[in-house]
Amino acid sequence: MPEPILNTRGLTAFYKDFQALYGVDLSVDQGEVLAIIGANGAGKSTLLRSIAGLMRNGADQIAFKGQPIGALRADQVAALGIALVPEGRQLFPSLSVEENLLIGGRIKRPGPWSLEAVYKLFPILKERRNQASTSLSGGQQQMVAIGRALMSNPDLILFDEISLGLAPIIIKDIYDALPGIVGGGMSAVIVEQDISKALSVSSRVYCLQEGRVSLEGATGEISREAISRAYFGVE
């Protein structure tokens, strides 16, 4: 059995007085693509933000490659090899396309990803490299956001709602590119509202409901009924 690259134990998270996560236990194996599904407000984004270091969590609640990272800042977590593609893309508007990618490569970890490799994956970005990132279409912006995360050559990449607000044809393009991204041994966690998209690329799935894990299992072994029960909480 391979060691999980990441696991959380009893993970809790708060926004001021509001508790968003109630003791989430989860593990991501080396090289696997994990999907996290759940309704709006189930805590999916909070979970990714916690892993990436953007929330305050207990030090031992999150371990990456056996090392506790729950209390680290996001920049420290990033340096260890975790990258987040945030919900809503969140490119830097003051930076050009290429500058957005370059700043993603500030953390220079060894690996296959470079400016050239990203341009090869998304050739349109090379054409638009000197444009303001805000001038791109939504799909192109999403490509920049993914490329920006890849530039640091992370061992674990977190995707938060990458299909949100994009046209189906664009979503297909982006999902078609995923195997090329995670094929090289990189582990990935994909958060999606679109269940079928998430299941199509992942080997295992967790369902979150009101800040707790309501279902967990291999993608092929879980029935639709179990998923909708876990998703909506109907018995």
Partner: peptide
């Protein structure tokens, strides 16, 4: 320069800049 890029990125969005390994 990379330093200026870091300035602009942090000014744009502190959280996301932090994700890029920038300690604000």
């Amino acid at each position: 320069t990379p330093l200026g890029r870091a300035f602009r990125a942090t000014s744009d969005n502190q959280d996301i800049a932090q994700l890029m390994g920038l300690n604000k």
